[in-house]
Design a binder for these strands. Structure first.
Length: 900
RNA sequence: GCUCGCUUAACUCAGUGGUAGAGUGUCCGCUUCACACGCGGGAAGUCGUAGGUUCAAAUCCUACAGCGAGCACCA
């Protein structure tokens, strides 16, 4: 046979993906059953500038498992791929590229710049999608979407116009988060809080008319903003300041007098109980300013440089330089009370990592209250979307929605969806789907479009339906929406998940998905988040190269919703598993002449060996478990069940026991039958494994005899006119006719007997080549029957030349002994090898252990409370267990006596 | 500050109201005709601490400790 001894994952990863794609296996149209149920997933579109990381690989693996499982189960399955235009990061990236050529975006102008971004996208935008092919992702590439393509842009304009017309979208002046590096406004969700060590500076403000004798002291982390103060606020109930309310202070360095006002916001117990108010540069101060009609003095520009309003001494300074200078000046004036160390939370731009500057600006906003309420109702009335894991996501989702504020949707960028609003020369604004429509509305062609673009998440919020053809009423939209499940990372539950729910309810009157699965986070081996800055990231492609895609997928499937520390040893163990699968198949194939798959275990029920019946039972139970686990998104359960079925049941027992028949004479029917059965079980196992390990299963499946024959394939009926591929076979389900409980318990007896003998061998250091005599004593006739019937199996795996079975254990004194369940006893005569003392000690130790168990069991049984209150089933269970244990103890006692 | 999660064998993690499991590692023995990325056998855990509920708690409840996450933050 030309099959190599070791599985080469790279080889099989090369061969199959292109064919699957070319033959249309990923397309829902492959399913020809008009009645087929539908399963659809919209991919969380990765950032087009990005490279694949393990977080993507995790999400994609889980989605692919679900998609392949449903597809094989006969669902018309669509997994729709695509990428996101990622406004800020893409623009920054291309800007950086230009910088290398000594150019700025302004040098190019808007149009040329955007062209340049598209050029960049054409060149590098395919990186991540090609990496997805390597993962084996069964997405329908013919439906790939990009948030900036024509269809999605149209959906964005449509939604914007409708929301504007409904009064949800408005343009207005409000305090916003300004990113001084990216030069754009950001939404609240794009701002991250970080605790930072800094200074809390206490400034003395002289009360007007007190001749520098009376001060009010304020504390601040941003002393430079004092240049824009227009009030000092105190709490009306604060005795210390009550008499000052209504007076003014002389604001140092500015020559201004500003009022002392009373506001509830001020906490008298914190700091000095007096707060400087800078309405133009602080969100809280802004609110207070609104309440008291305070003037705004803008002392900082969009680059965080001081303006002329800050005074001649400060104009042009950076905010941090200004801070130092203010402190110095106060010190010089004797107005610096103190400057103490302080830890506080600072707002940083998620993207630029620089402190956010709160500024009052004219921006576009979206009112969220009405849409929010629909989403909250959906959760309250129908419990949708259903989050897995339920905690904490169901709760934080709801809480976040309840506290939702208006959404800043405009961005001062060039790359993105330009806002469909046009201004006339007189300042009037016209919102329309097209320029022509705006012209018609305005009655003039002297219109300028708003230069701003929309938040990238505005287009992402439409992703579940814009990708399917919205606003047109397409067949795809009718067929595949709502999608079945969303699989995504936890950091975008608010940013994306909640917004998709709101827009979908608003525009389609239905949720975008019923289920949301939130994946865990892949951490480094020390439990740290992987990040570029820390340099602790693991590149999935390296892992694929080293261990194979299939092995990597198993690690990720096993992680599921749980945070997981990445370790090579885990991938390695699954790489070994893949090799195990390879070699099990290799064994079957090496003997496959004249054999075929598709053995009918029901029809040949009476010809089967015990291990056949047992393995088929296990196989069907595992099929049931896998289906059940996947329906609950418990990926790790499915992986566990498959791993242990394949390795322990199929390889360690079934194949080992099949070897006797498989090594029968070449052309004997017994041999062909045995190999056909093994091949058939293997074939079903490969199908069960396929969603998890697509490459190795396809590779091996194609080598099995009979799989590629048009007449005898096991393709799912819905795909009967497709080319044979394991992808389109029927996913196995548990077949009651093939579950044989008696076979399981009989096989357990055989396994226990063999294991006991093996243990004796190992403990007494008997050479594997030594053939033993095994003597069994059992009162139970059925037990004797089972053992006799499987004599050949037992002899083979216990390496025994002789097996004697009788009602009583009749063995020479010089024997090693052990007890089995059901009152059976086993002895292995070992003349000259038995150290009677040691043997007695060994048996006594065993006896002690069992005695302890029996004692505890009996104590429980005699406890009237237990007998009275525990369910009968549990009582019976324990009774049986104690009886068996006592039987074993009795057996051991006799054995010790037999040693003399 | 609030909310949530985690704490089980040396390591990484499953798990369940009824006498503790896996993988890796470790120890012993193996060129057993698919596989040394393997085969057979073994050792190894007061299931974070303290209470409570229960016939029975590692599992449910309460408090505490440690770790982590999210949200909100007071100048």
């Amino acid at each position: 046979m030309e099959i190599p001894k070791q599985y080469d994952s790279r080889q099989s990863e090369q061969d199959h993906y292109a064919r699957w794609e070319a033959e249309g296996c990923f397309k829902p149209e492959a399913n020809r059953d008009p009645e087929a149920p539908v399963f659809s997933i919209a991919i969380p579109p990765p950032n087009v500038t990005g490279n694949l990381h393990l977080g993507h690989a995790l999400q994609h693996t889980l989605m692919d498992i679900l998609a392949r499982h449903k597809r094989m189960s006969g669902y018309k399955t669509l997994w729709l791929p695509g990428t996101d235009h990622a406004g800020i990061s893409t623009q920054l990236m291309v800007t950086r590229q230009l910088k290398g050529e000594g150019l700025t975006p302004q040098d190019l102008g808007r149009e040329k710049f955007i062209e340049r971004v598209w050029q960049w996208k054409r060149e590098y935008g395919g990186v991540i999608t090609n990496q997805m092919r390597r993962e084996g992702a069964s997405v329908d590439w013919s439906r790939e979407r990009f948030t900036m393509d024509a269809g999605l842009s149209r959906a964005v304009r449509e939604v914007f116009v409708r929301l504007y017309e409904a009064g949800f979208i408005y343009r207005g002046d409000r305090m916003v988060n300004w990113d001084t590096v990216a030069q754009t406004v950001l939404s609240d969700l794009e701002v991250e809080k970080k605790t930072q060590k800094g200074k809390l500076t206490y400034l003395r403000y002289p009360v007007t008319g007190s001749d520098g004798q009376e001060f009010i002291v304020v504390a601040t982390t941003r002393p430079e903003t004092m240049l824009g103060d227009t009030a000092v606020a105190v709490n009306a109930d604060d005795e210390r300041y009550k008499n000052l309310i209504g007076k003014t202070i002389d604001l140092p360095l500015t020559g201004r007098q500003v009022p002392i006002i009373a506001d509830e916001y001020v906490d008298p117990t914190f700091g000095t109980g007096a707060v400087k108010i800078t309405p133009a540069h602080d969100p809280n101060d802004y609110e207070i300013g609104e309440r008291h009609n305070l003037p705004h003095i803008v002392i900082m520009d969009k680059h965080a440089h001081m303006t002329e309003a800050a005074g001649a001494d400060f104009v042009g300074l950076d905010r941090f330089e200004a801070r130092e200078k203010v402190i110095t000046r106060f010190d010089e004036l004797g107005l610096l009370e103190k400057n103490e160390d302080y830890e506080f939370a600072i707002s940083l731009s998620e993207r630029s990592k620089v402190p956010i500057e709160p500024l009052v600006m004219t921006q576009w906003f979206c009112r969220m209250d009405a849409m929010r309420d629909k989403a909250l109702n959906l959760m309250r009335d129908e419990g949708l979307p259903r989050f897995t894991p339920e905690n904490p996501y169901g709760k934080v989702y709801t809480e976040w929605l309840e506290n939702l504020r208006d959404w800043t949707i405009s961005r001062q960028l060039w790359w993105g969806h330009q806002i469909p609003a046009w201004f006339a020369e007189d300042g009037r604004v016209f919102v329309a789907r097209t320029y022509e429509e705006a012209q018609a509305q305005a009655g003039t062609d002297k219109l300028t479009q708003d230069p701003d673009v929309l938040d990238t998440w505005f287009s992402s919020a439409l992703w579940s339906f814009s990708t399917l053809g919205f606003p047109d009423d397409t067949e795809d939209l009718r067929t595949f929406h709502p999608t079945s499940v969303l699989v995504t990372a936890r950091d975008i539950v608010f940013l994306w998940v909640s917004r998709m729910v709101m827009t979908s309810l608003e525009f389609l009157d239905e949720p975008p998905f019923r289920d949301v699965f939130i994946t865990g986070t892949v951490l480094d081996k020390n439990g740290q988040r992987m990040s570029k800055t820390k340099g602790n990231g693991v590149d999935p492609l390296d892992v694929f190269d080293k261990y194979g895609v299939d092995a990597t997928r198993l690690v990720l499937a096993n992680a599921g919703a749980t945070d997981t520390r990445w370790s090579d040893t885990q991938v390695e163990s699954y790489r070994n598993f893949a090799n195990k699968i390879w070699n099990a198949a290799r064994f079957c194939l090496m003997n496959s002449e004249g054999a075929t798959i598709g053995y009918d275990f029901v029809r040949h029920k009476n010809e089967l060996t015990l291990h056949d019946r047992w393995c088929v039972t296990r196989l069907n139970k595992v099929a049931g478990q896998v289906n059940d686990s996947l329906s609950r998104y418990q990926f790790h359960e499915a992986v566990y069940a498959l791993y242990h079925f394949f390795w322990d049941d199929f390889c360690d027992w079934y194949i080992e026991l099949s070897k006797r028949d498989v090594s029968a004479p070449e052309d004997s029917p017994a041999r062909r039958e045995a190999v056909s059965r093994a091949l058939s079980i293997l074939e079903v196992a490969l199908r069960l494994l396929h969603p998890f390990m697509p490459y190795i299963t396809e590779d091996l499946w194609r080598r099995l005899p009979g799989t590629l024959d048009a007449g005898s394939t096991v393709l799912h009926p819905a795909y009967s006119d497709s080319q044979p591929t394991i992808m389109l076979t029927a996913f196995p389900v548990a077949d009651k006719l093939l579950i044989d409980e008696a076979a399981e318990s009989e096989m357990n007896t055989v396994i226990e007997l063999i294991s006991r003998v093996r243990t004796i061998r190992a403990e007494l250091n008997i050479k594997p080549s030594e053939q033993l005599t095994v003597i069994v004593g059992a009162q139970d006739a059925n037990l004797r029957q089972v053992i006799s019937t499987n004599e050949a199996s037992i002899k083979r795996l216990a390496r025994a030349s002789e097996l004697k079975v009788d009602e009583r254990l009749d063995a020479p004194r010089a024997s090693a002994r052990a007890v089995l369940g059901g009152g059976a006893e086993v002895a292995v005569p070992l003349e000259g090898l038995i150290d009677f003392e040691k043997e007695r000690a060994r048996l006594s130790r065993e006896m002690e252990k069992l005695s302890g168990e029996a004692e505890r069991g009996k104590a429980q049984l005699t406890n009237p409370n237990f007998a009275g209150r525990a369910p009968q089933e549990k009582v019976d269970e324990l009774k049986a267990k104690v009886a068996d244990t006592e039987q074993r103890i009795a057996g051991l006692k006799i054995m010790v006596e037999a040693l003399g």
